[in-house]
Design a binder for these strands. Structure first.
Lengths: 142, 142
DNA sequence: GCTAACCCCTGTAGGGGCTACAGGCTCAAG
DNA sequence: CTTGAGCCTGTAGCCCCTACAGGGGTTAGC
């Protein structure tokens, strides 16, 4: 009976984890940091997640996939929770994040170029005189 | 006199930090993790870094700039320390690292595209019906 | 000789974003 | 009734630093 009630009105943490593809401990972590609301509990203390809880988790996971930090997600959620958020505010958060992603890409590409260059200079031979080591030992020459 | 000796044969941690552009605490951290050798000490316990210590730090910092992890740097250094390293071994470590950098770039570019797309769909208006929020709330649609 | 100002020493805690335990309770099935 | 899975809590670990507290060393000026 209790089992029936649960299966109709909510799921436990393990089941939510399985459905969302998220580690069960991570769900608890998101709860302690306040991204997820404290869910209902059974008499014995087990968490019961409603459909709303599940979509909120999906929102968080999707945002994480897009590289938003926990703090950025907190901002997004609090805008939505307040109810009177404007599209412009959300847009600002998103383009800000986009900028930092683009910066990260630029940094990595510079890095990639340098690695390719010093790796290309290497004859892969058996003698220990390695241009990669030289490059690493030398002064900044990116 | 002691000061003269120091300035001729080595520098203290703060000076090394200044010269290398590295935080002084980070130097201590690299020592505890074994990337840097334990330097000489004055009678009172202050660390004194030789020229060799300084080039080793430069090597570490340069490798970090190129995104090598501490463990990867440990491998590079131990190859060099053993003395009989081959260029091929170094090359393998480097191309491995290069692959992970390229993977990271590809991931971020996919992410960038998605962010641009959902951000572009947004009218930035004042009404709270935001396509970004919809995208985040919706199922995976990258 | 004394003080101020600075450096250096040590150990330890924090950050971000989880992940993984240990030690105990609950629950569903056989 | 027992077994095994799953849940609960709190806490420690990961990576790569960074920053602090609480002490001692060193140097310049008076």
């Amino acid at each position: 009976m209790a089992q029936f009630t649960v299966s109709r009105s909510g799921v436990k943490r393990g089941e939510l984890a399985k459905r969302s593809g998220c580690n069960a401990e991570t769900i608890r972590y998101y709860e302690t940091t306040g991204l997820l609301n404290k869910p209902a509990r059974t008499d014995s203390g087990h968490r019961i997640y409603s459909a709303a809880d599940q979509s909120r988790l999906r929102f968080v996971l999707r945002s994480r996939e897009l590289g938003f930090t926990i703090e950025e997600i907190r901002s997004l959620l609090s805008l939505v929770d307040d109810g009177d958020y404007s599209c412009a505010e959300i847009h600002a958060l998103t383009t800000n994040h986009l900028k930092s992603v683009s910066r990260k890409i630029a940094d990595l590409r510079r890095l990639e170029r340098t690695l390719k260059r010093i790796s290309g200079e290497c004859a892969k031979g058996n003698e220990p005189d390695c241009p990669i080591i030289d490059a690493l030992a030398g002064a900044a020459n990116q």
